[in-house]
Simulated assay, not measured.
Amino acid sequence: MEKNYNPQDIEEPLYNFWEKNGFFKPNNNLNKPAFCIMMPPPNITGNLHMGHAFQQTIMDILVRYHRMQGKNTLWQVGTDHAGIATQILIERQIYLHEKKTKKDYNRNDFIKKIWEWKKISNLVVTRQMRRLGNSVDWEREKFTLDPDISNAVREAFIILHKNNLIYQKKRLVHWDSKLETVISDLEVQHRLVKSKKWFIRYPIFKNKNKKNINFEYLLIATTRPETLLGDTALAVNPKDCKYNHLIGQSVICPIVNRIIPIVGDEYADLKKDTGCVKITPAHDFNDYKVGQRHQLPMINIFTFDGKVKFNVSVYNYQGIKSNIY
């Protein structure tokens, strides 16, 4: 017997023996109770960390306990493609090693790079899980982009759509102008930044049939002056005695000379800046809500890479293409 305990000499051969002899597979005895745990699939973006080890140890204890009771036990193992995180990692790698960006590749070649990374990273992650002693059935190993998994996701969406539980609609999302893709709300980190505030005059549209208007313009404050190009209304608070008589009137949006309505909405804060707010439903989540309440058009002024469009895209409040402007 060796004087010092060497886990690599004992644990690895023992685990290989367990795996080779199928000790982690379900017993397929339908007369016995079933017990199953789906392992939250680790991302293929790097190595496992202490959180994985802690979580998987707890699951392993539960699985081994129920297996020892004779239950038909399965611990389903797999890994996750991690979408955007993996793409960012690959982009950094090709820039570091090749001084290229994803735009230097066509779609198929770039995807091929990602699959090459998946093959390497997946081996690292699964080896680490084996070293942890996870009693999973490796013959059932899955990847979240396996054809059967992808088909199951599509089938689920079709079923939900047929049951009117999901629908497609134009609405605001978090967009990454570098990766040119939608990102989850959970992946967005909001932070306060110091910036400039712009005060902009919107001339009152003088309609011959509407008199007794004592204002030449309404003044608004904004930190996003570029979104002026997508404005479809100004909002004032209905309780604002200074401006509420203007509700239903119109103003002229500067630069583009678009005639837009003045709406009454409590989103306009009486105590903030001028009390008047520009409404850009296509580029601000609060403005989008105001736009829905007042059925305002949405004007998308940005390209996928975050530049101002030469020809804007106009939709009605339901997200249907419109020629209102």
Score class of each variant (00 low, 15 high):
residue 56 Q to V: 14
residue 238 P to R: 03
residue 288 Y to I: 13
residue 292 Q to R: 13
residue 2 E to I: 09
residue 282 A to V: 13
residue 49 H to G: 11
residue 243 Y to E: 04
residue 86 T to M: 14
residue 211 K to S: 10
residue 74 L to K: 11
residue 66 H to W: 12
residue 233 A to S: 07
residue 207 N to D: 14
residue 221 A to L: 02
residue 325 Y to R: 06
residue 213 I to R: 11
residue 124 V to A: 14
residue 106 N to W: 04
residue 64 R to P: 02
residue 247 I to T: 07
residue 252 I to E: 02
residue 140 R to A: 11
residue 14 L to F: 03
residue 220 I to M: 05
residue 210 K to L: 09
residue 17 F to T: 10
residue 87 Q to M: 09
residue 34 A to C: 10
residue 22 G to N: 00
residue 118 K to V: 15
residue 232 T to N: 05
residue 38 M to Q: 15
residue 103 K to A: 13
residue 325 Y to I: 14
residue 294 H to N: 07
residue 293 R to Q: 13
residue 101 T to W: 00
residue 229 L to V: 08
residue 315 Y to W: 07
residue 187 E to Q: 14
residue 15 Y to F: 03
residue 254 P to M: 00
residue 115 W to C: 08
residue 209 N to P: 02
residue 145 L to H: 10
residue 35 F to W: 01
residue 187 E to C: 07
residue 237 N to G: 08
residue 119 K to L: 13
residue 182 V to D: 12
residue 289 K to M: 13
residue 262 I to W: 08
residue 233 A to K: 05
residue 166 I to H: 10
residue 65 Y to A: 05
residue 196 K to Y: 09
residue 165 L to H: 06
residue 303 T to N: 06
residue 262 I to G: 05
residue 21 N to Q: 05
residue 137 D to G: 09
residue 311 N to E: 13
residue 18 W to F: 00
residue 310 F to G: 07
residue 40 P to S: 07
residue 127 R to V: 02
residue 147 P to I: 01
residue 269 D to P: 04
residue 97 H to M: 07
residue 177 S to R: 12
residue 228 L to N: 03
residue 121 S to R: 10
residue 8 Q to E: 13
residue 233 A to V: 10
residue 171 R to F: 15
residue 51 G to E: 05
residue 8 Q to G: 04
residue 204 I to E: 03
residue 196 K to C: 06
residue 303 T to I: 00
residue 41 P to I: 06
residue 292 Q to P: 08
residue 257 N to G: 00
residue 139 E to A: 14
residue 118 K to N: 14
residue 69 Q to I: 03
residue 135 S to I: 00
residue 10 I to V: 03
residue 244 N to G: 03
residue 89 L to T: 15
residue 185 D to K: 13
residue 215 F to A: 00
residue 193 V to C: 01
residue 267 Y to N: 07
residue 32 K to Q: 08
residue 235 A to C: 06
residue 76 Q to M: 15
residue 317 Y to E: 09
residue 100 K to A: 02
residue 121 S to M: 13
residue 130 R to T: 10
residue 19 E to Q: 03
residue 192 L to W: 00
residue 90 I to Q: 11
residue 32 K to C: 02
residue 173 V to M: 10
residue 308 V to D: 00
residue 34 A to E: 13
residue 210 K to C: 09
residue 316 N to C: 04
residue 40 P to Y: 07
residue 227 T to S: 06
residue 210 K to P: 01
residue 5 Y to V: 01
residue 265 D to A: 07
residue 195 S to W: 04
residue 280 T to A: 12
residue 296 L to K: 06
residue 277 V to W: 08
residue 235 A to K: 01
residue 149 I to T: 15
residue 315 Y to N: 01
residue 152 A to C: 10
residue 307 K to F: 01
residue 274 T to M: 08
residue 164 N to P: 00
residue 87 Q to C: 09
residue 75 W to P: 10
residue 22 G to Q: 02
residue 314 V to Q: 12
residue 91 E to W: 11
residue 12 E to M: 04
residue 269 D to Q: 13
residue 60 D to P: 10
residue 29 N to E: 08
residue 66 H to T: 04
residue 290 V to T: 08
residue 286 N to T: 04
residue 215 F to Y: 09
residue 55 Q to E: 15
residue 193 V to G: 06
residue 37 I to L: 14
residue 53 A to F: 06
